[in-house]
């Protein structure tokens, strides 16, 4: 920061009132000096990137890496497709569709299982046990095994309705079964986190168990578990690629087809970027919700 240029940029900052003396004042003052902080971080980031770029460019084998992974020609071909290979972007819409449908079904199924698991009373023991067994199995069996069992097993049964569905449908069913087991546990943590006194207050008003759950427990529980829920959905977005093992041409499979026919991996980069482009907004949104929740609880603790 000793160049004349940044020195001039710094002037307004220097003219700011007395430099903060106490640490507390400095903490508050950091907002005043935000412009300078941004400038420093931008400069250091640019320097850092330049250094990395130089190292990469000078590294042995960098040209072959560039050709195999980042060739403009192959990137374009992978994105738009060729007469012999599918477009990776086009195939990615299948991932989006699988995700959207699976997400809704998971939210519903997991909620039902979580609520069933929290029904009290000895008469409901079999239902509770079933719910526990389901979450144990769903979380314990690898997704790819479930995909094989449903995608290859069910068609082989020769059942009228169930055995003539599309690969995508079987894939969605497998994703829903496995992910609902995880999401059930997330919901259950939320339900358990609602204090007994809330239930007592609702029941004292003469609300039934069902209405207590619906109006008092679940609204609070779901609000609390939105960040972990979104976290599971980030995983789900990526795992839609596994549906390709059943033969569906989604983004990862389309990229593989291109890579195998052209001996070039730019198509994988395209697919990877597409997945990242879908998951990053959700990840940032999750961060935002967690931060908001933290702030709100902080405020709550003060009052």
């Amino acid at each position: 920061m000793s160049t004349g240029e940044s020195g001039r940029d710094r002037d307004p900052g220097v003219l700011e009132p007395g430099t903060p003396a106490t640490p507390q004042a400095a903490g508050r003052g950091s907002r005043l000096f935000g412009g300078r902080a941004v400038l420093i971080s931008t400069t250091s980031t640019i320097v850092f990137l330049v250094v990395i770029a130089v190292i990469v460019a000078l590294a042995p084998g960098s040209s072959i890496v560039g050709e195999r992974f980042f060739s403009g020609f192959h990137l374009r071909q992978a994105i738009f497709g060729t007469p012999g290979t599918p477009s990776v972007v086009g195939a990615f819409f299948l991932n989006v569709r699988i995700f959207m449908i699976a997400e809704v079904l998971i939210l519903a199924l997991a909620l039902v299982v979580a609520v069933v698991r929290s029904i009290p009373g000895p008469a409901f023991f079999p239902l509770r046990a079933l719910a526990v067994a389901y979450t144990d199995l769903g979380r314990g069996v690898p997704l790819i095994l479930v995909l094989y069992m449903i995608g290859f097993g069910v068609p082989g049964l020769g059942l009228q309705f169930f055995s003539s569905r599309s690969d995508v449908t079987y894939g969605i069913v497998a994703l829903v079964l496995v992910y609902s087991a995880y999401v059930t546990e997330v919901y259950r943590a939320g339900i358990d986190s609602v204090h007994d006194s809330q239930v007592a207050a609702a029941r004292a008003l003469g609300l039934s168990r069902y209405k207590t759950m619906r109006f008092v427990v679940l609204p609070q529980a779901i609000r609390r578990v939105i960040p972990p829920l979104l976290n599971d959905f980030i995983g789900l977005q990526k795992d839609t690629a596994l549906v390709s093992v059943l033969g569906s041409v989604e983004a990862a499979r389309a990229a593989q087809i291109y890579g195998a026919s052209q001996f070039n991996y730019a198509s994988y980069v395209v697919a990877a970027v597409l997945f990242i482009a879908m998951t990053i907004p959700l990840a940032r949104f999750t961060d935002h919700l967690i931060e908001r929740d933290r702030r709100r609880r902080h405020v709550g603790a003060v009052t």
């Binding site: 006194s197 007592a200 207050a201 029941r203 004292a204 008003l205 609070q220 609000r223």
Partner: peptide, 16 residues
């Protein structure tokens, strides 16, 4: 319970 009101030490209002 509908005929009997109870008020708790910790209020127990529904925060949402």
């Amino acid at each position: 319970r509908r005929r009997i009101g109870i008020v708790f030490q910790a209020f127990n209002l529904f925060p949402h």
